[in-house]
Amino acid sequence: MVKHKKQRQSIPPFVKKLLRQEVGFGCPVEGCGNPYLEYHHFDPPVKVRAHNEPQGMIALCAHHHKKADGGAFTTEQLHKMKVNRENAAVVRGNLDWLRRELLVVAGGSFYYETPRILVIDQHDVIALKRDDEGYLRLSAKMLSLALRSV
């Protein structure tokens, strides 16, 4: 007898966008703010019923998603985190590699040893800065035309 594994539907883009907006585009776990988000199904858990219903899902960073899968947070805590936008002001993240030399290709142009790559209305949208050890740190600021609450 062959068992057929039930395939999960991929999460629709509008659901992902809604979940990221709910948490202010950063992991809502206190003190985190990591902008690299995954989507956790918790109410009900996907093992109980496969779904992509935003009211039962939350955007979390990979580290806290793994913890949530392991039961580190209650359903009530996760529902509270869904509306916690406190980390929106401290959204931050690091790329997992460091380089002393970096060639940036943006908009078809090449940038080498250029600290301010893209500036819009006096905001450094894409910039490079050397840290104390001489590594280049890439900074990308995501600008928005309007702040909307979800």
Score class of each variant (00 low, 15 high):
Gly56Arg: 05
Pro28Glu: 11
Asp43Gly: 00
Gly108Lys: 01
Gln21Thr: 11
Asp124Asn: 12
Leu37Tyr: 07
Arg20Asp: 12
Lys3Asp: 13
Pro13Phe: 05
Tyr111Pro: 02
Phe25His: 14
Glu86Cys: 10
His41Asn: 07
Pro54Ile: 03
Lys6Cys: 04
Lys3Asn: 10
Leu136Glu: 02
Gly33Tyr: 09
Pro44Ala: 07
Pro54Asp: 11
Val83Gly: 08
Leu37Asp: 07
His51Arg: 14
Arg99Met: 03
Val125Met: 07
Gln7Gly: 09
Gly108Pro: 01
Lys6Glu: 15
His123Asp: 12
His63Tyr: 13
Leu102Cys: 08
Val104Ala: 02
Asn34Pro: 06
Leu147Ala: 11
Asp96Cys: 03
Lys6Leu: 14
Ala140Asn: 05
Gln21Ile: 03
Asp121Val: 01
Val91Thr: 15
Asp124Ala: 08
Tyr39Lys: 08
Gly71Phe: 09
Asp131Asn: 14
Gln55Lys: 08
Tyr111Met: 00
His40Ala: 08
Leu95Lys: 00
Val105Gln: 04
Ser10Trp: 13
Lys16Arg: 15
Ala59Trp: 03
Pro44Arg: 08
Ser10Cys: 09
Glu22Phe: 06
Pro44Ile: 13
Met57Tyr: 02
Ser109Ala: 10
Val48Trp: 05
His64Arg: 05
Met57Cys: 07
Gly70Tyr: 06
Leu60Lys: 01
Ala140Met: 14
Val119Gly: 01
Glu76His: 09
Leu138Arg: 00
Val48Gly: 02
Val105Thr: 05
